[in-house]
């Protein structure tokens, strides 16, 4: 249920935008979901909708759109770029869980497939990002 904490962040951000923009309610939210954190979208969406129900005046019929983003890593030493999913099959469940909770631990467990360096950059697909929030004035 770690997804719940992130869902709470989305709801609070939406409420902040509603107040800042003087919106009556929130009609739609688009969220980019980075692959690295391995968010369980079903759990996340369930949590978000449950949280919306605590503020029905702000989130009545709010639609949630997801856009999945592949996680890519680029080695700072040799320049090799690779997809995180190519590494995923080599990781055990516990390791994968650690990266789920704290994506930066990818530097603990994953190495560049070319030069074995831990010094790589997460170029995309780290975690959640709110693309936009729409509402009615």
């Amino acid at each position: 249920m770690h997804e719940w904490a992130l869902a709470e962040g989305v709801m609070r951000t939406a409420l902040q935008v509603k107040d800042q923009e003087g919106l009556k309610n929130i009609t739609a939210i688009r969220i980019r979901v980075g692959e690295l954190q391995q968010i369980d979208l079903e759990v996340f969406e369930f949590g978000l909708k449950a949280l919306f129900q605590t503020r029905p005046e702000c989130f009545k019929n709010t639609t949630i759109e997801f856009e999945k983003e592949e996680a890519m890593l680029t080695c700072r030493v040799c320049g090799k770029s690779w997809a995180y999913r190519d590494t995923l099959s080599h990781l055990d469940r516990e390791t994968s869980e650690s990266i789920h909770f704290l994506p930066e631990t990818v530097h603990v467990y994953v190495r560049c497939p070319e030069c074995q360096s831990p010094d790589f950059e997460i170029t995309k697909g780290r975690s959640l990002w709110i693309e936009w929030i729409r509402g009615e004035k």
Binding site: S98, I99, F101, L102, E104, H107, V108, P118
Partner: peptide, 11 residues
């Protein structure tokens, strides 16, 4: 809890 006893080479 997440890195265990391994080094965390973070920038």
């Amino acid at each position: 809890y997440f890195a265990k006893d391994q080094p965390s080479p973070l920038r």
